[in-house]
């Protein structure tokens, strides 16, 4: 067998989506080829391939993805809220512990 073969995405795209189709009574349908092809197309069309190759630069670039700025803001805001809540929980725990100690006495 030939070892010179393409990447899996390239091979799947060709094998599943290209080539001669045999129709009529002589062929038996064993694979839901349309569904598979659709999924392969979606996979290739989605930026997933590129992302796997480390080419997701645009997702964090505010120039191409205006939401990137918002996302960064959101993350900061969440971190701030998280810190504030931690402080409150610690404060409440201290109060509960103090009350329990006073009751024991």
């Amino acid at each position: 067998m030939d070892n010179r073969s393409g990447s899996l995405a390239d091979t799947l795209e060709r094998v599943l989506d290209k080539g001669v189709v045999i129709v009529g009574d002589i062929a038996v349908c064993v694979v839901d080829i349309e569904l598979l092809t659709l999924r392969v197309r979606l996979f290739i069309a989605s930026a997933q391939t590129a992302r796997e190759m480390g080419m997701d630069w645009w997702t964090n670039d505010p120039f191409f993805t205006p939401k990137a700025v918002e996302r960064a803001d959101e993350t900061n805001e969440l971190a701030r809220q998280n810190a504030a809540l931690r402080d409150r929980v610690a404060e409440l725990e201290r109060t509960v512990r103090r009350t329990a100690e006073e009751e024991r006495r």
Partner: peptide
């Protein structure tokens, strides 16, 4: 793909769509 390529090395070939069962 490997079977299609093996034929392709010796002769002209028309690959069939994956999943063709006669």
């Amino acid at each position: 793909d490997a079977v299609v390529r093996s034929v392709f090395r010796h002769a002209p070939v028309l690959p069939l769509r994956f999943g063709t069962v006669l």
